[in-house]
């Protein structure tokens, strides 16, 4: 039920994102969604791709530092206050979010957000109990 996220270390300089994307393109990797966390001299590119292992190997082979981490994709109503409600729940259940980002496309009438929790197992248990729908990996990367 976890979604595998591919992260890459990049220097914050012109051309560096291009280099990473080129490797992924040549390896036939499709990016489903992505986000960049940046500082003044470096950044972390985090992506959900159709073939995370393939992407990881391709980047590693070209000398990039990459990693695979588990994140959770959660369906949230696409209405005002729904994200707030979700965050309230996480807060009440003492689930610490390291970072989050969203999918560009909706699933039916609901939005899908990606969360990286400090403790993913604890988060899953709590979200199930709270009635949140966690999107399966297969539904996202289509395999």
């Amino acid at each position: 039920m976890n979604v595998t996220q591919l992260s890459v270390f990049m220097e914050n300089k012109p051309g560096h994102l291009q280099g990473v994307l080129k490797i992924l393109a040549e390896a036939g990797i499709n990016i489903i969604t992505l986000t960049i966390a940046e500082t003044s001299d470096f950044g972390i590119l985090r992506m959900v791709v159709n073939k995370p292992d393939g992407g990881y190997e391709a980047l590693k082979e070209k000398g990039y530092t990459a990693s695979l981490t588990d994140v959770l994709a959660i369906e949230i109503d696409d209405t005002p206050g729904s994200l707030l409600k979700a965050i309230d729940t996480f807060s009440r259940r003492k689930l610490n979010i390291e970072y989050m980002y969203a999918f560009t496309e909706k699933r039916g009438d609901r939005a899908v957000m990606l969360f990286r929790f400090e403790d993913i197992e604890l988060a899953k248990k709590a979200l199930n109990e709270e009635g949140y729908s966690i999107v399966k990996k297969i539904d996202i990367i289509g395999e």
């Binding site: 470096f42 972390i44 530092t65 990459a66 990693s67 390291e98």
Partner: peptide, 15 residues
């Protein structure tokens, strides 16, 4: 140079 042992997907770890 950030190798795999040093790398993390979390900014706070690298910072």
């Amino acid at each position: 140079e950030v190798n795999e042992k040093l790398f993390s997907d979390e900014l706070k770890v690298l910072d």
